[in-house]
Design a protein around this nucleic acid. Structure first.
Lengths: 133, 133
DNA sequence: ATATGTCGCTCTCAAAAAGAGACTAGGGAT
DNA sequence: ATCCCTAGTCTCTTTTTGAGAGCGACATAT
């Protein structure tokens, strides 16, 4: 299990998985966070403008409060979004994207565009797969 | 729960989440698959060259056989990879990326590049966050 | 001849993660 | 007085993931 793993075609960006626990693989370390079920969706929303907690909740009706809080914390921890508390009554909290978050969203939005453009192809592939099985 | 949800800045690509079960949101439908913990990693590997099951297993030592099988099936179902069985003894199975998969990997690799380039910034953000908490 | 290893899985059981929803506090509106 | 608003947390249940055994047919090692 203590093998040194390099993905051949990515020489120069190889991932040493032997000390994977130490978080040595940049790609996995970063991707594993933003690849959460809700992360992309929230980044997409916050790329447009700042939102408050309740607004995000209404925007994504099928997210639980628990996961919304948790995902926002993780995005904040990784430096993609900022959290600002306004001590109004009732208190309000605003989430806004950081520079780092915006710089990530640039390439990320390309993938989102791809997803939209090729959704039909993917659905077709699924139908094909399910048919022959 | 039956609200019509549109992310304002993405007018024209709005997601109607009221029939989310029907899979009406292209972005979520596609992203939710490739955002699995292992999907990106396998796509990255297979973007380079075809691999056999056992090779992938050795390449990603901390994936369980169960998740490798499952993730490969999902990627195959969505049309990103092909699975070819060679009836040798013992049998061998080769996985290779499709045209669709390659077209996805184009924008996806931009995100992977970003991840590598900004890994330090993300780690720094984490340290900052954990310190002030 | 017998044991062990290879291959690509599937199956079971335990652990981790996610979803649903009740509960909090402090004030404003009805 | 009652209810609702805010942004959460806490608990309980369901789903997903992880660890690893088993399989069947053949090759190699002893």
């Amino acid at each position: 299990m203590n093998t040194n793993v390099r993905i051949p075609q990515f020489v120069g960006k190889e991932c040493d998985m032997s000390n994977w626990d130490a978080g040595n693989c940049p790609v996995r370390d970063v991707i594993n966070q933003i690849s959460g079920k809700w992360s992309t969706l929230l980044l997409q929303a916050l790329a447009g403008r700042p939102y408050r907690f309740g607004e995000l909740r209404r925007l994504v009706p099928d997210i639980s409060q628990r996961m919304l809080t948790q995902t926002l914390r993780e995005l904040q921890r990784d430096g993609y979004i900022d959290r600002e508390v306004f001590p109004t009554k009732p208190p309000s909290v605003e989430y806004r994207m950081t520079e780092l978050g915006m710089s990530l969203f640039l390439p990320l939005s390309q993938v989102l565009d791809w997803a939209e453009a090729n959704h039909a192809a993917v659905k077709a592939a699924r139908v094909r797969f399910d048919a022959e099985a």
